[in-house]
Design a protein around this nucleic acid. Sequence first.
RNA 1: GGGGGAAUGUCCCGAGCGGCAAAGGGGGCGGAUUGUAAAUCCGCUGGCUAUGCCUUCGUAGGUUCGAGUCCUACUUCCCCCA
Length: 415
Amino acid sequence: MPAAPQFQSDFLRNFAARGAYYQCSADADLDALMQKERVTAYIGFDATAPSLHVGHALQIMTLRRLQQAGHKPIVLIGGGTTKVGDPSFRNEARPLLSEEQIDANKASIRRAFEKFLTFGDGPSDAIMVDNAEWLDKLEYVSFLREIGRHFSINRMLTMDSVKAKIDNDLPFSFLEFNYSIMQAYDFVELYRRYGCRLQSSGSDQWGNIVSGIDLGRRVENQQFFALTTPLLTTSSGAKMGKTAAGAVWLNPDMCSPYDYWQFWRNTEDSDVGRFLRLFTELPLDEIARLESLQGAELNDAKKILANAATALAHGSDTAGAAAETARRAFEEGASAEGLPTITATLPDGILNLAVAAGLASSNSEARKLIANNGLKLNDATVSDPKLTVDASALNGDGVLKLTSGKKKHVLVKPA
RNA sequence: GGGGGAAUGUCCCGAGCGGCAAAGGGGGCGGAUUGUAAAUCCGCUGGCUAUGCCUUCGUAGGUUCGAGUCCUACUUCCCCCA
């Protein structure tokens, strides 16, 4: 990561101090602009899934910090670009999503932003825009004449994301090739509509953003800016936001606040400080103190991280409840209310229950789990895959607890 | 348009003389150890009403007692020539 310059503007100074700065197209100019006036900035999110996930959290935090510093954030939903599919650094073309699917995804994604940003008509209120609004209406020939003529194939072929495809003999269709043109055009369109001059994103989008900057200079004679964040991996190299169950989603119906809290609670030691800076709003000196804790004491810092990050995404009451559930489940070993809960008809076989609880994806997998001593019923290891569970397993609260491994607890309630 | 190559275990990469539920990785899961961490070691990693049965190697046919492996056609991708 390049060293961040010394910034004067509130936003950039804070952005860099928290470790979110990776690269900027014109540091000094942007810094000056941000001191002088309210800057309108956008980040684009494609609607490829029904929810954003933790991997997007850094971008959302960027918008939030822009807003807090008095600038105007635009959330651009890629309703149009999703139809084309971003090929950047992917080995395979994304399967094309149907329009109905994209529409459903768009509707579902929007909700997550409302927790992080204040939307409205005020000068620094956030707005949400869908690029399908203009991309869907484009006319091919006039678009080529107005916009396409500014793109040099020679130059596009040298972009890292494109070059990687070509060097590795990977399929690369004309459709995908157009993605970065669409994204560049978005930037210009947002400038025309809202005076937007800054695009931020993860560093993998650098090439696409720079295309937009070039286009802005050519068709609008205006200086646009790029500001990117580092691509996040955990210290051991894993992709941010992937866990056992898959992605850590921001929508509570796809990842419960309890699981979201657990995700942050399980942060690796060496990531605690970095994540506190990036994903919370705790003061930096407080973070420095937490980060310096040694050994098991770091667990306290992880709880603070989990509380703060969950509060941003789901509200502080919800975060507190998740913390309390975790405390009772892990520190007291209790079948704490608030753990993921399913209902089932008893009596039932242990295999069925394990599958119903999501602890195994098939009966075979449940058998293997039992064979490896990985399944517990009310904290007692299950050894017989033929075990039938009836009402006598229910505890005082009328539930029973199934556990896979050491951390995954699910409560079963009789129907 | 002509010629050559590729597609493998529904996560990825990848080996595979006609006897194959298919080598080896990565990833994931579980166990030991631990601090709900990392590292390390060990086990598991297609499904089922389970010492057996069923379904898998791009798609559809064919040869064969038997096909991921051989033949034909098709689909998609890559490379070279035009």
